[in-house]
Structure formats: structure tokens, C-alpha cells
Write a protein that binds this DNA or RNA. Sequence first.
DNA 1: TGTCCCCACGATCATGACGC
DNA 2: GCGTCATGATCGTGGGGACA
Length: 431
Amino acid sequence: MNLAERLRNVVRPAGSPAVTPLPPPGFPSSADAESAAEVLGGQWREWRDDRYLVVDRRYPPGHRHGRVAVADSAPDASGAWPALGILDPRVAGEVSPERANKGADGRVVFLDLETTGLSGGAGTYAFLVGCGWFDAGTFQVRQFLLTGCAAERGLLEAVGETVAGAGAIATYNGKTFDLPIMQTRFLLHRMAAPFEGLPHVDLLHPARRLWKPEEAGLTAVDAAVLGHVRENDVPGFEIPSRYFRYVRSGDPAPLQAVLEHNRLDLLSLAMLTSRIARLLEHGPDAAATAREALGLGRLYERRGMLAEARACFVRAAGSGLPGGATADEMLTRAEALRASALLYRRTRAHEAAAERWQRLLDLPACPPHLAREAREALAVHYEHRLRDFRSARRLAVESLQVSSTAVRVHATQHRLARLDRKLNPAPASFF
DNA sequence: TGTCCCCACGATCATGACGC
DNA sequence: GCGTCATGATCGTGGGGACA
């Protein structure tokens, strides 16, 4: 039984006082200088003998984040939130365009934490909890800043009130990072985590499917997809040290950039969620690039929406989409042809699959690993379905010349030997 | 008709990326 | 350092076709 399970089994007797975990060694009970509220633009909330800071910001419909305005991303404008159900089926029944933008029950709450470290164990806690949601066309951000460890329970209660009634939570890598940390903190205070059972859309993996892997970090996706280039943004690794500097000195100035970083993350999160929802709703025609069409097809395929997936692969492979000359764009088209061929093969449309494999081989700069796979698939097709042994043998010989591993070489030699037997059958024995 | 071989798919495992 | 997911490689299995 791990620590979390043991803690879950601890039942607080009715009427017994709530427990506040002991602060880590060296953590002051209240490090907030009076100037923090003024410098960071927030208001103190008292909790027992301590307090935490609440910072509210509203981004009006006309506010632009890169190329995108808040109004363009609000659920009523796109009307596409239910499509998020393709990512998490539980979302479909919870989030309608009306509810998602009501600032009340059923809304999507975007969540982003800044923490004292990366390990995610009980010693790591969230000193800043950022929540965001759309409210009548504007984007509302509420940040809870912990300035003294003793107020953590009060802060968690406030976060719980903010999340209460939400239809879904949206995060970036929240499945792994944000929600486990929050659940641990609620657990340590013997409080029920408000996220339990709530539909959760983690954008990290859809983002990696839709956009290039090297652009999968939120800041990079922000720039590539939304056109928002962050200036003077604080790097993630620097965030804990800025917080500890504030705790030691009481000077809130280093935290300004941290709170701004958190707000930008929430804005990016909301706008990317809207972008993904719109793509899922409108299909391949909404894709701006071949890479986006390919990634969208993979999202559909994962949910068993094969017709939609096929349409996306067709658009990515043959598309009249912009670009088409760079190595990366050629790779995208090759991957789209491969995905299309595999999908046709899965549905036993072997002729259509063979056509895609051949088009893949005909690409001027077909990547070697995809060319090898295409040759092997075509060799199978020629041998077993068309019974054209000569073509199958030619492909096998070509495949042998580029086979990389001993296993592949052996398999191809085996195929060649079999084809040779079929092409030159041994004379019948009289004995 | 029985046996053998191969294909295609699913399951499993290893690896890498990501969050702060 | 940890949990999740995507990806690629490998293995096992079921089904179908070829052949004697």
C-alpha cells in the first residue's frame, strides 16, 4: 500500500479538528509583505490566523493573444465544445456551448499550477493555483497565491469553491502533473478533491498529435499555433527559486513575472482548447496545415471515427494546403499516406491500400523507414492477392538492399526463397 | 480434408517526451 | 523523479488460402 492509499484510509472522527500539515523546515508561517497585494494586484483573504492572496483578471472579448481574440475562442463563438467529447467521452454530456460560457455550472475550468518543484511527492506543493473560465464572452482568471503554509487549507477550500459545478477541467499535462499534486494536497488536509470524477481534457497529447513534437511544450505551441511570442517570459525552472526568494525576503517583485507566466499559460490553454474543439467539430476542412490534418485524423482514428480519419489523411497527403516543399512537409505527407494505407488495410480495402503504398514509394523524398514498410506491404499484396510473383520478388530484392536489422533481413530472405520456389517450381519427382 | 504457411491484428514491452 | 501517453518493435493468435 503506497502513501496515498494509506492516507485515504485514515478517517477523521466526526467533530475532530481539521489538521494542517506541518510546514517544511525553514518555511515562515507568514512571509507576505504588506506590499504583495499592491505589487501583484490582488486582495488578501483571511483564513484563521493566516491569509492568502487572490488575484483576479478579466480579458475582454477584444483582447488578443497572438493572432486570436478572446471572442474568437469563447464557446458561443465556436459553438464547438461538445466536440471535446472525442477526447474524453464524459465531456460530451457535460459541456454544451451555453454551459461552457456561463461562468457557472457546467463551465470548463482551465487549471494551471506553479509549484515548488517537479517531483510531485508530498513535499512538493502548489504555491500558485491558476483557474480560468469563459464568462459571457470574456475570459476570467483567478489566481490563488499561497504566502504562508498555514493558509493552504483555506486556499484549497477556495479552489474547491471555484471548481465546484464545473462540467470539465482542462489542463496541459494535468493528468501527470497538476491533478496528482492537487489530489495529494487535498489528501494531506483530509479534504475531498473537487476533481474526482470530473471529466478532464489533458491537452498535451492532442497537441503533440496535432502539431510537431518539438513544438509540444505549451510556450512553443502558443507561438506556433496562436502566433503569440512571449517576451521576457520566466522559464519554468526558474519559478521555484523566485518563490523561495520571495519567501525569504518578503519582496513580491520576483513573483510578478510568475503570475504573468501563469496567466499566459491559462490564456494559451483556453485558446488551444477552443482551436482543438473547432478542429474536431469541423473536420479536415478546418485544418490549416498538412500536419494538423494528419494529427486530426489520428485523433478521429483513435476514437473509431474511421470515415472522418480517412478524410483527414486524404487532405494531409494530397492536399491543397499551404506548403509542400520542405523536408518536414514531405515527411508529413508520407506519414499521411502511410496512415491512409494502414487504415484501408484494416478495413480490408487492399486495392486502395496498395495504391497508397505505391504513392508513398513514388514520393521524391520518401523517408527510408517508410519506403521499407511500403515495399514489404506491396510485396505481400503482389504475392498473395495479385499473384504477381515477379513484381513481389523485385520489391523483396529492393527491400533486402535497405533492410536494417538481422530480423528484417532474415524475413526478407525467407520471402525471396519462397517466391523463387513459386517462380521456379522443382520438377516433379518420379519416386 | 488436413496441414502448413502467411497475413493482420492485438497485446505487451521498452523508450522517450512532457509538466515545474 | 514520476506518471501518462505515443511510438516502434516484437510476439502470440486467429483466420484464410494453398497445396498435397
